[in-house]
Write a protein that binds this DNA or RNA. Structure first.
Lengths: 153, 153
DNA sequence: TATTGTTATACTCTATAACTATA
DNA sequence: TATAGTTATAGAGTATAACAATA
């Protein structure tokens, strides 16, 4: 089999396995994958409007309403009024949300250690470089097709 | 940031992006991710009991009932009686299911070409080797935690 | 008694469309 | 007129628990 296809299929497998493993460890924090993803972006970007979160997560604005409802009810984040646009809502992490994201960062470090802990550092740096290239292609691919939904040309 | 953590986070991002991209191309075939995954395993394993499919997909037997209902209604697969165990059901691909899986293989080849088409072959072989190692660790990790659900020791 | 698949029930993620308040 | 978020509605994936048929 072509090495490219082998890589693609292996990436697919890793995606499925990561989802399973993550789901489990997130459950221990009282989170689902979708909610953790939202909180993660909030942690990364700081206070954000729901509109921005929808774009970042590539889901519908309606979906964000539900996710924010859930993380707000569980005390991970809060809605604040936007200072200059009264239509908009700012979503911000609570202290509980912030410390949970820090825990998640530690969990990632532990998982990263388990996955490639005793591999050679040079080897890992080559791997990371190629992975970055592939991820960038994939980002472009998704962006290109996302803006061309039906397309009958 | 540690290169291991960088790799882990990038793998997570790739998982999310792949899911988005796959979802789109599967829609064109009249499939969802979960149903395509079931048909893919059927293509890979040949006729299988629902029990085996549940284990392979790491979902509940009840879930498989619903997925098989859906792919059967859409003509991708059929239920057959098991020759030696009257409790069990064999799920088999129809001709339509088989040709759809072949189309999906071709789609994978095209996607693989787009993701790493013009990268150096030696570089890709190193990448594939490390990716295989990481995938194997992940498989072990998932298997280890899957068999120890609550665990209060 | 254990196993295969199903019915019953419930929760979550996701989407589109219509609506309200604001820009 | 356009935008931010919500209510309404619907489909899909997932899980556990109880049950029937069979091993």
């Amino acid at each position: 089999m072509d090495v490219r296809v082998q890589i693609f299929d292996r990436l697919l497998e890793v995606a499925v396995l990561l989802q399973h493993d993550l789901g489990r460890s997130l459950g221990a924090l009282g989170l689902t994958t979708a909610r953790a993803h939202l909180l993660w972006e909030l942690h990364r970007l700081g206070p954000s409007t729901q509109r921005d979160l929808a774009a970042e997560l590539r889901v519908s604005p309606r979906n964000v309403t539900g996710l924010v409802d859930a993380v707000e009810a569980a005390g991970f984040a809060e809605r604040r009024s936007h200072p200059s646009d009264r239509r908009a809502t700012l979503v911000v992490l609570t202290e509980h949300g912030r410390s949970t994201m820090e825990q998640m960062e530690r969990d990632h470090e532990r998982a990263a250690e388990q996955l490639c802990g005793d591999l050679d550092t040079d080897q890992l740096e080559d791997f990371a470089r190629t992975l970055d290239t592939v991820a960038e292609r994939l980002r472009q691919l998704v962006a290109a097709t996302a803006t061309t939904p039906p397309r009958d040309a």
